[in-house]
């Protein structure tokens, strides 16, 4: 599909804002987290999120999550028009609770990972990813 960078950027209704101020949170992201956790408290340790500090192109940003023992990890992009990215549910034959994928970011923003740990508690990790704007539309 012809998802040009400009269109990807335009995905964010307030795309211009993202260059000035990274989205720290959005109501929709908060809602998604609440739905996933049932409102439980979020620990800082237990889930690791790997994402580039600067993404060469917001269309294809490599990310990885790791949460030893977790049953599920949800990934959100707070500044996208819809914050959902993916939810990884680990089965009994997962050798580790790790996974990587490639995602779209509508602009500079926070990527958030929420893990449901083995004991039923939840952990959170977040990374700010800068999305660069090229000069060539070519």
């Amino acid at each position: 599909m012809d998802f040009t960078r400009r269109e990807t950027l335009a995905l964010g209704g307030a795309a211009a804002l993202t260059f000035v101020l990274p989205f720290r949170a959005s109501a929709a992201a908060d809602d998604a987290i609440a739905e996933f956790t049932g409102g439980a408290a979020l620990a800082d340790a237990g889930v690791e999120l790997t994402a580039p500090e600067i993404a060469e192109n917001g269309n294809t940003v490599p990310i990885a999550v790791s949460a030893p023992g977790a049953t599920a990890v949800m990934v959100l992009a707070a500044g996208n028009p819809t914050p959902g990215v993916a939810t990884f549910n680990f089965g009994p034959l997962a050798a580790s609770q790790t996974a990587s994928t490639r995602m779209r970011l509508a602009g500079t923003q926070d990527v958030i990972a929420i893990a449901k740990l083995a004991d039923g508690s939840f952990a959170r990790s977040a990374k700010t990813v800068k999305v660069t704007i090229g000069g060539c539309g070519g």
Partner: peptide
């Protein structure tokens, strides 16, 4: 050098056809 955030290459075509992240094809 950079043209805004784009890092200018020599414009070599030894890698073509090329999969571009920008249009994912």
């Amino acid at each position: 050098n950079y043209i805004r955030a784009d890092h200018l290459s020599q414009g070599q075509i030894n890698g073509f056809p090329t999969y571009r992240l920008k249009n994912a094809k």
